[in-house]
Nucleic acid binder design. Sequence first.
DNA 1: AAAAAACTCAACCGCCCGTAA
DNA 2: CTTACGGGCGGTTGAGTTTTT
Length: 331
Amino acid sequence: MMGRSPCCDVSGLKKGPWTPEEDEKLMDYIQKHGHGSWRALPKLAGLNRCGKSCRLRWTNYLRPDIKRGKFSEDEERTIIQLHSVLGNKWSAISTHLPGRTDNEIKNFWNTHLRKKLLQMGIDPITHRPRTDLTFLSDLPHLLAAANLLNQMNPLDSSLGLQVDAADQLAKIKVLNLLQLISSSSSETPNMEAVNLLGLNRLRDYALNEFVQSNTQFQRLLNNPHGLAANPTQMQSSFLDFGIPQSTSFNSSYATPTTANPCPASVSASPESTIVNQMDSKIIHPNEISAPSSSSTTFDALGDFNLDDETSDFYWRELINQSSSLSWPITS
DNA sequence: AAAAAACTCAACCGCCCGTAA
DNA sequence: CTTACGGGCGGTTGAGTTTTT
């Protein structure tokens, strides 16, 4: 026989948006009888729909325990964290977000989070810094954000939120930028993109802009308060989910240590080591001990910011040496 | 003011899987 | 053991809405 025919192909069954009347019928019926067999339900409830359509309408919309409205930042972080482990297992992800349906999470991911990660230079599939550098064409905006930071009084509460947002974004982008730059050597395929974008000039500009001038930005970099992904919280909530280690290891999205897209570049010059060190600091350390849960950029950033003394050290080193930096990239 | 482009999200489709027959 | 069925899942669509030009 041919492939299975769609359940509602049998003519006459309504498709498309639900009317309030239909909703009411469905709700009434389920309230009185429970849903029982979805296939049998439409006839019993007096609905001209297929059972599948009814089930979908109920689980994604009419169910009384559904939370509506914007996702909180907490939920957002949870989704990103879980997605880095589970991939597109929307249903599994939704079990950790009370009142949110898989469909809603999927939509939210596709319309918001994916873009957000891309904009931050994070590959939404691997959750690691993107290896193509096209996002860096956005660098002017990044720099503008950083400049704005410098002009803002961070104590001005009316601007507090904006400072935080810009702060987070700038931090993340700078770190990814530095990772990518520092991991590019003339041998890597990145090189082409780097030259294409005239990144060398951008790099100098960026470093001068970020590193040389401002104590305020530096302070913000070292200030964990505005950090998008508080590492401690992230780690513990991650554990709270009770995700078995094996899940992440088996996940097709878990990146094996050998496939690190940001390999420590061969130190072409002594001066480049500082950035490479930082790169290692950012990306590598936990991978060795716990490859499963620590391979996301958020975790990496968390590490970087967790240890104030260390990050302070690296930034100071970077600042001290920035004027004389000779990079492994040559123009 | 109007047209086009971009976005949103409810709902659909086809496939998969567990299980009852 | 095989197969048919129902429920569930992830990918995709497209009408309605909002934003941009």
